[in-house]
């Protein structure tokens, strides 16, 4: 039993070293902008950069939009499949697995070829159209995570009983979704939302290939041209991701558990 514990600690220690050393090294590097002593100059330089503000704002806005679209697309679908169309479930599972199998760069290549300015739906013909396409691309990237979050949320509450109870009291379907189901899976939806945000805020491939002024391409450009700012940006990105994940952890404590889990 002692030996057990020793190996566990050893594995944990090695893992911790692998994951913490790069963070420490990056942080240390980000403080070295001024020769001779540590300073936060690199951070000041990042925050003062108007491109930083503009791209971050742009990516945040598209991210928020993607969250809204994602919720509108996923929640009713999961609800009806769980409640009334269980035979569509394998199809849903398969579709939501696709973004993990088809690389993002292949998807965006398909978008560019399919929705070019001379096609039936010329998304890439205008800036607004491209923004819409980018939003949908982000929704697609986050689809597996949003789907699983919402699906888990609906499994935790007994949506069948809730729905039937609401029906007996005379509510119609849109009202049931809006006033009964959504509040009960709010925590799950918000988890999916934060996960979506964490995934898309620094997204590079699609944003860059659609030529949109997002945060991901900005990071890449800074990385190619500056020395210390990239480290500062890496630390900032890590903090943003941590913030989004921390919110999910926090939310998990408020998740409703009205019925026993069956699994």
């Amino acid at each position: 039993m002692k030996a057990d514990k020793f190996w566990s600690w050893l594995v944990f220690g090695l893992g911790a070293a692998y994951f913490l050393v790069p963070l420490i090294a990056t942080f240390e590097f980000s403080l070295k902008m001024r020769r001779g002593y540590y300073s936060f100059d690199a951070y000041a330089s990042v925050f003062a950069d108007p491109d930083f503000q503009a791209t971050f704002l742009y990516s945040s806005l598209v991210g928020l939009l993607a969250i809204v679209v994602g919720v509108l697309v996923v929640v009713p679908a999961v609800y009806f499949v769980r409640l009334r169309l269980p035979h569509l479930r394998p199809l849903m599972e398969f579709i939501t697995l696709l973004p993990l199998i088809i690389p993002a760069i292949v998807l965006v290549y398909g978008y560019i070829r399919l929705y070019n300015s001379s096609s039936v739906i010329p998304f890439t013909g205008s800036a607004l159209g491209t923004d819409i396409l980018l939003t949908c691309a982000y929704v697609t990237l986050a689809l597996p995570y949003m789907y699983r979050a919402v699906d888990t949320g609906m499994r935790a509450i007994d949506i069948k009983t809730l729905t039937e109870a609401a029906q007996i009291m005379g509510a119609d379907t849109p009202r049931i979704i809006a006033t009964v189901i959504l509040p009960n899976i709010l925590v799950a939806v918000l988890s999916g939302a934060f996960l979506t945000f964490a995934i898309v805020i620094g997204e590079f491939t699609i944003t860059s290939l659609l030529n949109r002024p997002g945060f991901g391409p900005y990071l890449q450009i800074v990385g190619a041209n500056r020395a210390y700012e990239p480290s500062a940006l890496a630390i900032l990105s890590f903090i943003i991701t941590w913030g989004a994940m921390g919110m999910i952890q926090l939310l998990a404590r408020f998740a409703p558990r009205t019925s026993a889990r069956t699994d």
Binding site: P22, L23, A25, T26, E28, F29, S30, L195, A198, I199, G202, E203, F204, G216, L219, Q220, G223, P230, S231, L233, A234, S237, F238, T241, A244, M245
Partner: peptide
């Protein structure tokens, strides 16, 4: 979720 460009920066550092 800490992939992409910032991760590259971290490993260069």
């Amino acid at each position: 979720n800490f992939a992409g460009v910032p991760l590259a920066f971290a490993f260069i550092s």
